[in-house]
């Protein structure tokens, strides 16, 4: 047999792909997006807490944040997902019954929180200390200054890194298949794998791969676009210099002595 032809049929069997496509799009794609986006949002909420704790002056906040970050960033994603998904299963059973899906989201969120917390922390620390000083000088409390002045600026700076993390989550969500999902809960990778196992042909798995690329490649380009936009800024709409306004305040007597 022609080895090239065998290779081609293993990966590019259109019939297998067509068969897998409907389930891929109606079940796999939504589940992948739900897993990734929910974990990104939960991970961001946790990440903000981690970031603020990580730069706190209180050792008892800084220290646990450090350990949390080291653990969930240092463990392989597969290990975390198994540990959380299997380890917490009895607990989950009591809360929402025999359903591994929420635990999968939890595990992904914990992983994401460690990375996103570090992203947020560097974002906050990249804002000049003088911004905090100016906000405090106006009478804003530390919390108000962070919430209204520092964090909104930090978020703009970390957006590219955050989107990168979303890309990582989309890929890591494939690992949730370890936990034994119900048929309706399967994400892209699991569906591709199931078809591949049933037919002995890898084309459905390749299709799953193409679905991942269809999600991640545009996001990668979005990151680059955001990055460029942030670096160069949007085109100015007003004159930046040479504005005669700057000179029109030569008030009578202002330079000519103290008239009090």
């Amino acid at each position: 047999m022609d080895p090239l032809r065998t290779l081609w049929e293993t990966f590019f069997d259109w019939e297998s792909m067509r068969e897998a496509l409907p389930e891929m799009l109606t079940v796999g794609l939504p589940n992948t997006l739900i897993l990734a986006v929910t974990a990104a949002l939960l991970g961001s909420a946790l990440g903000i807490l981690l970031a603020v704790a990580g730069i706190s002056r209180t050792r008892w906040l800084r220290w646990p944040a450090r350990v949390w970050t080291d653990v969930f960033r240092g463990l392989p994603a597969a290990a975390t997902i198994l540990l959380i998904g299997v380890g917490l299963a009895p607990l989950g059973m009591q809360v929402w019954g025999p359903n591994p899906y929420p635990l999968g989201i939890l595990a992904l969120s914990l992983i994401a929180s460690a990375y996103i917390g570090e992203i947020f922390r560097s974002g906050i620390q990249s804002i000049e200390a003088t911004q905090l000083e100016a906000a405090r000088a106006l009478g804003l409390s530390w919390g108000e200054a962070m919430r209204l002045v520092i964090i909104p600026q930090g978020i703009r700076r970390i957006l590219p890194a955050w989107v990168n993390q979303l890309i990582a989550l989309i890929k890591d969500s494939s690992l949730v298949y370890f936990l034994g999902l119900l048929a309706s809960q399967r994400e892209l990778f699991r569906i591709g794998q199931d078809y591949a196992a049933n037919t002995g042909n890898q084309s459905a798995l390749l299709l799953a791969g193409l679905c991942y690329l269809a999600l991640t490649v545009p996001l990668t380009h979005a990151v680059n676009w955001i990055d460029r936009r942030l670096r160069h800024g949007r085109p100015a709409t007003g004159p930046a210099h040479d504005d005669p306004d700057d000179l029109d305040l030569a008030l009578p007597g202002a330079a000519g002595g103290n008239q009090r």
């Binding site: 700057d246 000179l247 305040l249 030569a250 008030l251 007597g253 202002a254 330079a255 008239q259």
Partner: peptide, 14 residues
């Protein structure tokens, strides 16, 4: 640009 700002400060002082 210094003059305009100094003038404003002088006005405030006055």
């Amino acid at each position: 640009l210094v003059k305009g700002v100094l003038a404003l400060m002088a006005e405030l002082s006055a």
